[in-house]
Amino acid sequence: MTTLASKVKAFIELTKPRQAALLLLTMYGAYVASGAPLDPIMLLKLTVLGFTAVGGVTALNMYFDHDIDSMMRRTSKRPLPSGRISFGEALLGVTLMLIIAVTVASTINEYVLFTVLAGLYFNIIGYTELTKRFTALNIVVGSIAGSMPALGGWAAGAGAITLPGVLLALVVYAWQPLHVWFLAYFLEEDYRRANVPMASLNYDVRVFSALTIVHLAVMALAVWMFAFTTSKGYMAALLSTVFISLASVRVAYFVRSPSRAEALRIFKFATPTLAIVFVLVPLEVLASELLVLSW
């Protein structure tokens, strides 16, 4: 029993629940932003879908990357490199999770199903297999996968993939370099040991910082375009612009005196920069609906 419990615990660790929770926030946020009713059954479906789809793909990613993980100090104690779970057990768990994800998604609609399978495609084939070890711009492909939960949330609420949903997905897409490149800079030794190219390690600091700021500008543009196309989310656009500006200033400061400590500070600043959009936009939508009801 202890063995089974420890195996289950190891598998849950393999799915990186904390990362899944952040992506789940983008899914809920996009769902509510679409104006869909807060149906408890749908929210339950989205929760199961989010954890199984994101967790399953993440675990499959670790399955394929176990050789890299064993070379990096930060990841060497993960369940697969440390041998706490076998490859067969991990693959069985991944397959079951993905089957559940596909089953649940197919009960919502085909667009949601598309986002689940597209997330798998871009994360595993596009990122882990074809770009991660071969180009420093790997995250440009990998970020597409990260934006799928937001697109899926919107598709679940709106019943289709429409422009506002794509804009919310673009917000997540454009945010990811800030999150990933500065973490990689902080963990430079690990990445170099595993020989994984990263823009923040292989390019001049001015180049990758400029690329990050361009992505942040796209993020701000996407938030404002969402507000203009839906006439909702102006408060979120305003506040996220403040956060994005602060992040850009930090990145600009980083160019003048790059350091691991500053890279870590920027990395930590990234999560609230994204969270503010996916918390405030749905709150504004809910508030406006309550206002309409009260009239």
Binding site: L60, F64, I68, T95, L98, I99, V102, T103, A105, S106, T107, N109, E110, L113, V116, L117, L120, Y121, I124, I125, T128, E129, L130, K132, R133, F134, A194, N195, V196, P197
Partner: peptide, 26 residues
């Protein structure tokens, strides 16, 4: 049906990922 098509595509993508497993970093 969405479920059957979804399972087929999931299987196809898994099989594809199984033949493109990277062996080393450059």
């Amino acid at each position: 049906s969405s479920l059957a098509a979804g399972l087929w595509i999931l299987g196809f993508l898994l099989a594809t990922s199984g033949v493109l497993v990277p062996t080393r970093a450059p």
